[in-house]
Structure formats: structure tokens, C-alpha cells
Amino acid sequence: MLVSEREQLRANIERQVKEFGNDRSALIPVLQDVQHKYGHVSEYVMQVVADILHIHPVEVYGVASFYSFIGHKQKGRFIIRLCRTISCDMQGKDRVARQLENDLGIQFGETTPDGNFTLEWANCLGMCDQGPALLVNERIYTKVTPETVHDILEECRTLFGVYALQEKETLCELPTPVK
């Protein structure tokens, strides 16, 4: 990372800390914000956050690794999380999963080579009555069938999803693709 980038990052975090308060209870909102803006929370960011909030970096690491929605590795631009709990399972999540893997050419837990998609399992999304459910970044899709999987992916690819557009506007720095 360039020095100027680091400075920018630090300034960003300091701005957020001002908003959320300068103590350890601000940790999760700050991490969520960083995750939202940069797509991941790097080890450098964790140390900066720890420094500003006066806590130990390893505590930040522990918190970040506890939550699956906060990652310390760069993931794809669109993170697809398919629910794997019992209701969705009974309503055919396996077929949806196979369709996703086929369409994207990756397994669960992997990222596409172009850095656009990451496929992950999620535990209950709270949509048990409308399963199978999946989450693309922060947008939920319910009653997904193998046919709709294609549409969802196309929606992401052409970047006309409502959420995707919103996200593009709020991004102050686009995540760099995974090499």
C-alpha cells in the first residue's frame, strides 16, 4: 500500500470514529463501515483501528474473525451467500447451489478469477417461509430456483441491480480485483 493511501485510510477511519465515538463499543460499526467501503478489513486497518480506539490489535482481529460478514481477505465484488439451513435445504437449495457453481465455475468458498463473485454458505437468513434464500451483498433474493439464478447473476454482471448501483456511488475506493 502506498503511503498516501495509508494516510487516506487512517483519515477515513478517524472520521468514522468521530461519528461512532472514541471507545471500544465503536469497534463493530467501524469495522462494518470499513468492510462496506473496502470490501475487506486488512490487517493494517485492524491495527489502525486498534490504535485509534485504544485497544489491542489482536482483540480487533478476534472480533473480525468472529463475524463471518467481516473478512480480512479481499473477496469478490458480489458476495453470494446461499442459506444452507434446514428449511432452505428442504425447498431445494442443493439444485440452486449446483446451478450457482456451474454458472460461475467455482466451488463454495471460492472467488471467480475476475474478482467479481464470491460464493459462500450462510446459516439461516430468516427467510424460512420463502426458501431457498440467498443474499447478494446486502440484498436478499427469495424463492430462488435454478432458472432465477441465471437472472440474478446477469443482474449483477450488467451492474443494473439497484443495490449495485447504490454501492457504486458510495464507494470511495473500488476494491482491487483479486489476482
Binding site: 485497544i55 489491542h56 490489535p57 489482536v58 482483540e59 482481529y61 478476534g62 474473525s65 468472529f66
Partner: peptide, 13 residues
Amino acid sequence: IDLQEVGVLEVDK
């Protein structure tokens, strides 16, 4: 973390 305030160890995941 507490007795020594060094902060090297923590639980992962």
C-alpha cells in the same frame, strides 16, 4: 490482555 496489557493472544473464530 488484562493482567499484562500486552495483547498478544486472543481467540480466533
